[in-house]
Every structure is written in C-alpha cells, then in structure tokens.
C-alpha cells in the first residue's frame, strides 16, 4: 500500500517534469514565429523604439504596403511560387505513383535492379549536378522559364519510395486482377482504380512536395533572374541583399510573414496527416 502511494507520487512528479520540458520546447519552437506575427502588426517607429509581446495596430498598413510595393514584388512572387509548386506537386505525385505501380504490379526482368537504383539515387543531392543542369537549360533556352523547375519533378525518388511502401502495405493485387477480368486497360486501371485507392499516400506526399517546392531556393536561384519571374525565396534573398537602413521594418516583417504563414496555415489544417506521414515513410527499429 505504502509503496504504491510512493510510486504513484513519483510518477506524478516525473510527469510534471516532462510537461515542463515539453512546454519549454513548444515555446522555443513557436517563439520566433510569434515575434514575427507581432512585429508584422507593428509600425516601423514602434519596432525601432522597443520590444513588445503584444500586437500593434499597423497590420492593415503593413499589409497594404507589401501588396502595393512596386519594386519588391512579393505578391507576384507568391503567385509564381504557387504556380510552380502546384504543377510540381501534381507531376511528382502522379508520376511517382505510376513508377511505383510499374514496379509493384508487374513482373519483369530488371525490376529489382531498377528499384535498387532508385533507392540508391534517392539521397544523392541535386546540387552535385547543378553545373550540368545550368549548362543544359541554357543550351535548351529554358533559362528564365519555369520549365526546369517543374518538369524534373516527374522523377522524384523519395516520393516514389513512399508510394511503393504504401502499395506494399495496402494495395492488394486482387483488385488489379479483377479490373483486368472486367476488360479495363492497364492505363485506365491505373488512372481510375489505383489512383483513388492511393488517396491517403497522395495527400501526404502532396503536402511534402508542395512545401519543398515552395521553400526551394537553390534551384530557382540558378534558373530565374528576371524580377517578374522570381519566386518567394528569391525575393527573400533580394531583401537580405538590399540596404537595410532604409527599410520599413513593419513592412519587412510582413514580407517574411507572407512567405511563412501560408505554409503554417496549411500545416495546422492538415497536421494530423503530416505527422502520421513522417512516421509512415520512416525506417522501423
């Protein structure tokens, strides 16, 4: 009896300690974004004058300043980013599913070799071929277009691997056999039966694909040079390189907020799938 009480007391103490530590990490994860949110609502003079944990009254003014800025085209950059990321994600998800299905559903001679090859190239960074990539797109007259940022998404090894894992766990071959008996052609089966069955995996990969394209800085910096083509990360780099002393800090924080908050909003809506997805695509102990 006495021992039990002592034990339950110690577990309460441990639990309390755990919550303190967890709250600490939650706070440091959120703190910088909180300051961003606060400062995006404050006027330049207030930001210069001092630090505050409470929002100011200049949200609308800062928002309009960013919206109407004619040299730093953040809104235009957002539209470009949205365009590139949307097409990228459609291509990578569809064709990764197709590639995974090709290996999952059919037996052919080089199946194993091809699968191993894709797995092997999965972690090789794209930066090692950056030089050849720049040369190639210059040669193909694709510089200052979105094509070299979108088309390569068709070959996305990590997305492929996730799709393949998902198919192994939840795509029975009987469904494919049944479709064949019904006389459905292979492409038709893939588009109308398989793709809908992959919805959960597609949702997870759509989020990851979208954010990684939205956040991508290295590749667009090699491809896009004109102001009207720039995506958001390129504008962030531009702001960083500009003369800081002349900046309206309220507007500056609002520009950063434009790049960060759309993803946070999407994340908060879909966080359950995302956190599950991270675990799903991982190695088990």
């Amino acid at each position: 009896m006495g021992k039990e009480i002592k034990e339950s007391g110690s577990i309460h103490l441990r639990r309390f300690f755990c919550y303190i530590v967890l709250i600490f990490f939650a706070v440091i994860s959120l703190f910088s974004f909180y300051l961003l949110l606060i400062n995006a609502t404050r006027a330049h003079v207030d930001i210069q004058r001092g630090f505050s944990l409470l929002p100011g009254k200049s949200f609308v003014r800062n928002f309009n300043n960013v919206w109407n800025n004619e040299t730093i085209l953040i809104v235009h950059g957002m539209v470009n980013s949205l365009f590139v990321s949307s097409l990228t994600v459609i291509l990578s998800v569809y064709f990764s599913a197709m590639t995974a299905y090709g290996i999952h559903a059919y037996d052919f001679r080089f199946k194993k070799v091809i699968f191993d090859f894709i797995l092997l190239i999965m972690t090789i960074p794209t930066q090692v071929s950056a030089l050849g990539f720049v040369k190639l797109i210059t040669f193909m007259h694709l510089k200052d277009t979105f094509v070299p940022l979108i088309i390569p998404a068709i070959a996305a090894p990590a997305c492929f691997f996730f799709m393949k894992q998902y198919m192994e766990s939840s795509l029975p071959m009987e469904i494919i056999e049944a479709a064949r008996i019904d006389g459905s052609s292979e492409i038709h089966t893939f588009n109308t039966i398989i793709i809908p069955l992959l919805k959960p995996a597609i949702a997870v990969q759509a989020i990851f694909g979208f954010t990684s394209s939205w956040n991508n800085y290295f590749a667009p910096s090699l491809v896009l040079t004109k102001a009207q083509d720039k995506t958001l990360p390129l504008w962030i780099a531009y702001i960083r390189g500009a003369d800081f002393t002349k900046f309206d800090m309220g507007q500056l924080y609002m520009m950063i907020a434009f790049s960060i908050f759309p993803v946070i909003v999407i994340y908060l809506i879909l966080s359950k799938f995302i956190v599950q997805g991270v675990a799903l695509g991982s190695v088990k102990g």
């Binding site: 639990r15 755990c18 919550y19 967890l22 990490f25 939650a26 994860s29 959120l30 910088s32 974004f33 300051l35 961003l36 400062n39 954010t211 939205w214 956040n215 800085y217 958001l232 990360p233 962030i236 780099a237 702001i239 960083r240 800090m249 500056l252 924080y253 950063i256 790049s259 960060i260 993803v263 946070i264 994340y267 908060l268 966080s271 359950k272 995302i274 956190v275 991270v278």
Partner: peptide, 29 residues
C-alpha cells in the same frame, strides 16, 4: 502523457518553414 498530439504538431512545424525566410527572420530578430 496527454496532449502528445499537440506537442508533436508544434515541434514538427518549423520543419516545413521556408529555410531562407526563417534565416531572414533570425537575421532581423
């Protein structure tokens, strides 16, 4: 532990943030 879903959601969030914008934010902060 309770609220583990909440804590996981919060601590994972910075992973999806645009690294360049995050660096810019740290630069100003």
């Amino acid at each position: 532990l309770k609220f583990t879903g909440f804590f996981k959601t919060v601590i994972y969030m910075p992973n999806l943030i645009m690294a360049s914008a995050f660096a810019m934010l740290f630069f100003t902060l």
